[in-house]
Design a protein around this nucleic acid. Structure first.
Length: 596
RNA sequence: GCCGCUUUAGCUCAGCUGGUUAGAGCAUCAGUUUUGUAAACUGAGGGUCGUCGGUUCGAAUCCGACAAGCGGCUCCA
């Protein structure tokens, strides 16, 4: 692990490269204006207003020119200037002028940094000398469109991204990681492994899951529901459309009206496809008066939600217009919150632990500077946040990330981020404490004193969206699903098309199916080598070849997918019963190792 | 939604600057072969070149709109 000094140094390199990129682009494209360009994780970027749009194909020549310009650069020279002088220098660049106006509000002097023939307005943070940059340790990666200052109402600029490290070896390592990520891309694997498809006829963001993909969904969902059953969740079922009144009461209408799929009935009534499930579930709770003795009431349901997402936001299974949530709502009193949240947390730990994900916790709170984005008084916000914080402290101490402004509009959340096998983080599970919808829907219980008491709701999704979880999980395991999830658990291939051999293979498959396994027979007229290759490509965990030898001895030599843990004697002959029994055991125990 | 790029057979991709019946590999189908742990051989079928419109004597190729996808931005209950 690098020390702090080393880390600052690489940040300095990245920052300095952003300057170099700005200098190079301005030189190569007369009329180009640079806006901002900071160091970021693994690299840097620089925003430009370009006279003509550039594309990815332009990057190699910009990169080559950067290396030339770099040779002319030396120490970074700092100079303090007055705002007036700065304005004069950058009169050609309205972006810098805007920054100068802003910075000069609280500073009398601004700073310029110069290396080679290039000077930029900058607060600092470079390395001392541009000669410290290894010209082989950076690379321009992509160009994208961005809004000036991140505001979609303002000018659109072009951003050039680069990656940069202290050494060429580190750059190579990072490039290798990106290539590995590309190989694992769930959109690619989804097609190769025959898990899901999209159709132009059906529409963007509307995934169609194949039989194989559906196995994955059902097994994952069953796992979550099995754990919820332990904690007395009750399964419910709701329709997928609703009158808009439900969203007016919940507060969603005000905030998400634009993102709803709306339906007008022939009688002119307005409905919407449900974008979430809480309003429906509240009505199950509110169907009759509830005694405090009944609480907590826990509803769970895996069901599809529909949101009219912006077309540019759709991406594989990560962002969809129709997606399925493994949703649950707990209706309870303040005194129940801690215990209920801990139960959910336990399910989350067990679920993600099973897959080898490392979890990080984010405490997602309201942004005091932006209260208009939230429902309810700030006092109530602070109150509920305190409740969640004490739970977080209890579970992980100070080991959590502050997510100011990351709350839902109706309440604070505990969000969980999973770190995958190649080090990327994804937001997954969530526990949300909601004091607003119980108000909106007037949810109460009759308390010990016989009075109506306002209750609280906890929203909890373990996978969040099954679809999005799948996108993360497919990439995490690179499509090599453990036996309990594998759409095809064992493939029985015949050596040839001899009747007796084919019959034996079919008998084994029938036996496997009777034990609840997912087995297939490959009796095609193909070479053994080809059949093995096909099974490998589909990442089937177990494969056996049946020939005369097997017919004679009744024993099988399993071919076990390489990522699975095995014992020494795994790759020896086993009886059919022994082999199938093992696979059944692995199917139930949810481990990715064979007990052969 | 915004900026940029892309779209040729089920999949992966050729097709130069517009010019007679649009190609390959894999997959599929048929025949041959009857195979021992990651690709047997031969042959056949399959595409109105994303859709619609325009320019042109002539469009897969140029222009426009729309759709879908990719990389970003914005958004994310």
């Amino acid at each position: 692990m690098g020390n702090t000094e080393g880390n600052n140094h690489v940040v300095g390199i990245r920052h300095s490269l952003a300057h170099l990129l700005a200098a190079t682009v301005i030189e190569m494209y007369p009329g180009a204006k640079n806006a901002i360009g900071p160091a970021i994780e693994n690299g840097f970027y620089q925003d430009f207003e370009m006279p003509e749009p550039i594309s990815d194909e332009d990057l190699p020549k910009i990169e080559a020119r950067m290396r030339e310009v770099l040779k002319t650069w030396g120490t970074f020279v700092r100079r303090e200037v007055s705002p007036e002088e700065a304005r004069q220098q950058f009169s050609w660049n309205q972006y810098k002028l805007e920054l100068i106006d802003e910075f000069s509000k609280d500073a009398k002097q601004l700073t310029f940094y110069t290396s080679g023939a290039f000077t930029d307005l900058c607060r600092g943070g470079h390395i001392d000398d541009a000669k410290e940059i290894d010209p082989r340790s950076f690379k321009l990666t992509r160009v994208g469109g961005v809004y000036w200052r991140g505001d979609e109402k303002r000018q659109q600029l072009q951003r050039i991204y680069g990656i940069a490290f202290e050494t060429q070896a580190q750059l190579k390592e990072y490039v290798a990681m990106l290539e590995e990520a590309k190989k694992r891309d769930h959109r690619k694997l989804g097609q190769e492994l025959d898990l899901f498809v999209f159709s132009d006829l059906i529409g963007a963001g509307l995934p169609l899951f194949t039989p194989r993909g559906t196995v994955l969904r059902r097994k994952l969902d069953a796992f979550v529901q099995e754990m919820r059953d332990e904690y007395d969740y009750q399964e419910v079922t709701i329709p997928h459309i609703t009158k808009k009144d439900a969203y007016i009461a919940s507060g969603h209408w005000k905030k998400f009206e634009e993102e709803l799929f709306r339906i007008t009935t022939r009688e002119g009534h307005e409905f919407a496809m449900k974008p979430m499930n809480c309003p429906h579930h509240t009505q199950l709770y509110a169907a009759r008066s509830r005694s405090y003795k009944e609480l907590p009431i826990r509803y769970r349901e895996t069901t599809t939600c529909y949101r009219d997402e912006q077309s540019g936001e759709l991406s594989g299974l990560s962002r969809l217009r129709a997606f399925s949530q493994d949703d649950a709502h707990v209706f309870c009193r303040t005194g129940h919150v801690e215990e209920e949240a801990l139960k959910i947390w336990d399910i989350i730990d067990r679920f993600y632990g099973t897959f080898g994900f490392e979890l990080k916790v984010r405490f997602s709170t309201h942004d005091p500077a932006n209260m208009s984005a939230y429902s309810g008084s700030e006092e109530k916000w602070l109150n509920t946040e305190q409740q969640l914080l004490s739970i977080i402290k209890q579970k992980v101490g100070d080991n959590y990330i502050d997510g100011v402004g990351e709350a839902a509009f109706y309440g604070p959340k505990i969000d969980f981020m999973a770190k995958d096998a190649i080090g990327r983080e994804h937001q997954v599970a969530t526990i949300q404490l909601d004091f607003n919808q119980p108000e909106g829907f007037d949810l109460t219980c009759i308390n010990e004193g016989g009075d109506q008491e306002r209750i609280l709701m906890i929203h909890a999704a373990i996978m969040g969206s099954i679809d999005r979880f799948l996108s993360v999980y497919i990439e995490h395991v690179a499509g090599k699903f453990p036996v309990w999830l594998a759409p095809e658990q064992i493939r029985i291939a015949t050596l040839n098309q001899d009747d007796e051999i084919v019959h034996f293979a079919k008998d084994i498959a029938a036996k496997a199916k009777s034990l609840g396994l997912r087995a297939t027979v490959d009796a095609d007229n193909e070479s053994v080598g080809k059949k093995i290759r096909n099974a490998e490509l589909m990442k089937v965990p177990y494969m056996v070849v049946i020939g005369g030898k097997e017919l004679e001895t009744g024993e099988l030599m399993p071919r076990i997918r390489q990522d699975m843990e095995v014992n020494a004697e795994a790759h020896t002959a086993h009886t059919v019963d022994e082999l199938l029994k093992t696979i059944v055991h692995e199917s139930k125990s949810r481990v990715n190792k064979t007990s052969l």
